[in-house]
């Protein structure tokens, strides 16, 4: 957007440029209309083709319809689940788990991360530990969590928290630690104290990094939620998918899988919007096209 305005300004400032830029024929307006539409189609064309193939393969008997039911049956199955309310039962349970685990993780990770980023020596002591925790596969720890918390809600919430915490923590530390020292010097020269510096300079400067951590943490927490529900549970979306598979309710199983994919995309999309809203001041590279 801004680059376009800049182009326009250049064009106004330099009439010679406009003259050479004039295109014979009306191809330009059409191109302008098609360009954004084109991007839209490029993204969805593949998905539509896959849906078409999905519908065609079982319909024409190219694949066993029991293993891969027709896409239309999957959609019907999903609406049946909505109608009977079975879907919402599991959905609500999953949302409750993920929100307590995810937000619990944030409440833990962000303050501790700010503290660790601020006190660099402390960070040096604990950094290897944090790295080890982040890089250990979360699900291998699940047996320990079950051992400690039982197979109830606590273990699931705790493991989601675990999966959220480390990536948010590391990004928060990095954000706080990498604040441009010139900005700190500038604020200090105005006699700013520690708390004001934290609130007015360090936190805003670290926001992009923290938000990136939150986005990664959210993706993690969905993955862990489903896995945890598949391992030891009798409710939730992860359980629901396994349950339908065990009962040979294959269209419903696929409906659950697709719903989770859509949920993941939606959460990612929302967080990207939040990120770009909160960091609109960030210098955007003009060297990559939109």
């Amino acid at each position: 957007m801004s680059t376009k305005t800049a182009d326009a300004q250049v064009a106004i400032a330099n009439p010679a440029l406009t003259a050479t830029k004039v295109n014979p024929g009306a191809s330009l307006p059409i191109g302008k209309v098609l360009k954004p539409l084109g991007a839209f189609f490029r993204g969805f064309a593949i998905i539509f083709i896959i849906i078409g193939l999905w519908e065609a393969f079982p319909r024409f008997g190219w694949i066993d319809p029991f293993l891969l039911p027709r896409f239309s049956d999957v959609v019907t199955g999903f609406f049946t689940l909505l109608k009977t309310g079975e879907f919402f039962k599991h959905f609500n349970v999953s949302i409750a788990r993920i929100s307590s685990g995810f937000f619990g993780g944030l409440c833990l990770a962000i303050p501790i991360g700010i503290f660790m980023g601020w006190f660099k020596t402390f960070e040096e002591y604990v950094n290897p530990l944090v790295e080890a925790c982040r890089n250990s596969s979360v699900l291998t720890l699940y047996p320990i969590f079950i051992l400690l918390f039982g197979i109830g809600e606590q273990a699931k919430i705790a493991i989601i928290m675990w999966g959220t915490t480390w990536v948010v923590l590391l990004n928060t530390i990095a954000g706080v630690k990498n604040v441009d020292s010139v900005l700190i010097k500038s604020a200090r020269s105005m006699g700013v104290g520690d708390l004001t510096l934290l609130w007015k300079v360090i936190l805003p400067a670290a926001t992009p990094s923290i938000i990136t951590g939150i986005r990664l943490g959210a993706a993690n927490s969905i993955l862990i939620l489903i896995a945890a529900e598949m391992i030891g549970s009798n409710s939730g979306l992860g359980f629901m998918i396994f349950y339908f598979e065990a009962r040979y309710a294959i269209p419903e199983m696929y409906a659950g899988v697709i719903f989770l994919a859509l949920m993941g995309v939606t959460v990612h999309e929302i967080l990207c919007r939040v990120e770009s809203y909160l960091t609109s001041w960030h210098e955007k590279s003009i060297y990559f096209g939109t």
Partner: peptide
Amino acid sequence: RGFVMQAYALFPWL
């Protein structure tokens, strides 16, 4: 005292 630096040091989020 007011300080002006070579690196501008403007707060980019403001």
